[in-house]
C-alpha cells in the first residue's frame, strides 16, 4: 500500500491537530538527525515505557503461567500420580507414547484429520458469512446475532443433547439426507461418521472467527472499495486486491488461533462422548486423551509429556506461519 492510502485512513480518523502535526512531520523530514546520545536516551525511555505497559501481563506471565509451565515440562520426564512425589523416568513417557500406546497413535490421527479438514471449512464459512454480513449494516444485526447464537452455548451439556439428536437415526440430518437419496442412518454411533459430525459441530459454532473477521472488515476504509469501483474493478478484483490484503492481519490471526484451538479440541468431544472418547475412540482427540490420562488415570507425567509433544508440534506450525507472514500479511502500520 502506498502512503496515499494511509493518508486517507489518517485523514478520516485523525483529529485536526494530528493532521497539522503530521504536516509538520512531513516538513521536518530529512532535517531531523538525532545524535547518538539522545537516541540512547530515547531508547531507554522506550524500554521503560514498554515494560510499563507490559507490567500487568508480565506479572501474570511470571506469576501465574511460567512456573506451572516449567513444572509441567519437568513432569513430562517423570512418573507422577498426583499423590506421591514425581519420580524421574527420563524419556520413558515419550517412548511409550510412540511405541506402546495404540490409543495415542489413533488420537494423533483423528486430531490431525479434525484440524486439517475442520479448520479450513470453519474459516471459509466464517469469512464468507462475515462478508455477507458486511455487505450492508441495515438489518444485519439480526443475522449477526443469529449466526453467533450457536457459539453462545459453548460446550454445555445441552450442546451434546442437541447435536446427538440432530445426527441420530431418523434425526433431521438423516431425514434430509434420505430425502436426497443418501441413506446412511445415524451418525452418532457410526465409527466413520463421528469425526465429520464433530467437524460440523465446530463449523456450526463459527461465531468467534466470524466476529473477528467482521471487526477486521469494519477496519477497512470503505473509500478503498469505492475508489476501486471507480477504477473499474469487479467484485472478485475488489475481494482479491482490497479485502484480502487489508484483512490479512486478521486472517493470519484467525488461521493461527483456529489451528491452535483445533489441536486442543476438548470440551465438545468431552460432552458429546460424555468423557469416554467413544465410539471406538473416534472422539478421543489429543487433549481429551491427555486429560483422561492425567485426571482419570492419574498418569500426570505421561499427560505432561503428551502436552509438550503437542506444544512442540504446534510451535513448529506457528513458527512456519509467522515466517510466511512476510509474504502475504500486510500491516498498514508497519509498511515502510
Amino acid at each position: 500500500m502506498s502512503t496515499e492510502t494511509e493518508s486517507i485512513v489518517t485523514a478520516e480518523a485523525g483529529s485536526r491537530s494530528v493532521r497539522q502535526a503530521m504536516r509538520q512531520v512531513r516538513r521536518d523530514e530529512g532535517r531531523k538527525v538525532p545524535s547518538s546520545a539522545s537516541r540512547r536516551k530515547a531508547n531507554r525511555r522506550e524500554t521503560v515505557a514498554g515494560y510499563g505497559f507490559l507490567l500487568p501481563w508480565l506479572i501474570g506471565f511470571l506469576g501465574l503461567t511460567v512456573g506451572p509451565m516449567i513444572f509441567s515440562l519437568y513432569l513430562a520426564f517423570t512418573k507422577y500420580n498426583l499423590f506421591t512425589e514425581p519420580e524421574w523416568v527420563g524419556l520413558d513417557n515419550f517412548v511409550r507414547m510412540f511405541t506402546e500406546d495404540p490409543n495415542y497413535i489413533q488420537s494423533v490421527q483423528i486430531t490431525l484429520v479434525y484440524v486439517l479438514v475442520g479448520t479450513p471449512i470453519k474459516l471459509a464459512a466464517a469469512l464468507g458469512v462475515a462478508m455477507l454480513l458486511n455487505y450492508r449494516d441495515r438489518g444485519s444485526g439480526f443475522f449477526r446475532s443469529s449466526f453467533y447464537a450457536p457459539s453462545l452455548i459453548g460446550a454445555s451439556v445441552s450442546v451434546a443433547i442437541v447435536w446427538r439428536a440432530m445426527f441420530s437415526n431418523d434425526g433431521p440430518v438423516d431425514n434430509s439426507l434420505s430425502f436426497f437419496g443418501i441413506d446412511i442412518g445415524g451418525w452418532v454411533g457410526n465409527v466413520q461418521l463421528v469425526i465429520p459430525m464433530m467437524i460440523l459441530l465446530a463449523v456450526w459454532q463459527f461465531g468467534a472467527p466470524m466476529v473477528i473477521f467482521l471487526a477486521g472488515l469494519k477496519q477497512i476504509p470503505q473509500e478503498l472499495y469505492e475508489a476501486a469501483e471507480v477504477d473499474g474493478a469487479g467484485p472478485w478484483h475488489r475481494f482479491r486486491n482490497v479485502t484480502i490484503p487489508m484483512l490479512s492481519s486478521v486472517i493470519f490471526f484467525n488461521l493461527l488461533l483456529e489451528i491452535i484451538n483445533a489441536f486442543q479440541v476438548f470440551a465438545s468431544a468431552y460432552i458429546i462422548s460424555n468423557g469416554s472418547g467413544g465410539p471406538a475412540g473416534m472422539t478421543n482427540f489429543y487433549t481429551l486423551y491427555l486429560y483422561k490420562r492425567g485426571f482419570a488415570d492419574l498418569q500426570m507425567g505421561y499427560a505432561s509429556a503428551m502436552a509438550w509433544v503437542l506444544v512442540i508440534a504446534v510451535a513448529i506450525i506457528a513458527f512456519i506461519l509467522f515466517k510466511t507472514q512476510r509474504s502475504w500479511v500486510h500491516y498498514a502500520g508497519e509498511n515502510r
Binding site: R164, S168, N169, G186, V188, G189, N190, S273, N274, S276, G278, P279
Partner: peptide
Amino acid sequence: PQQRLEEIYP
C-alpha cells in the same frame, strides 16, 4: 447392536 447403544449413550 453397538451402534444403537452409541446413539443413546449416556
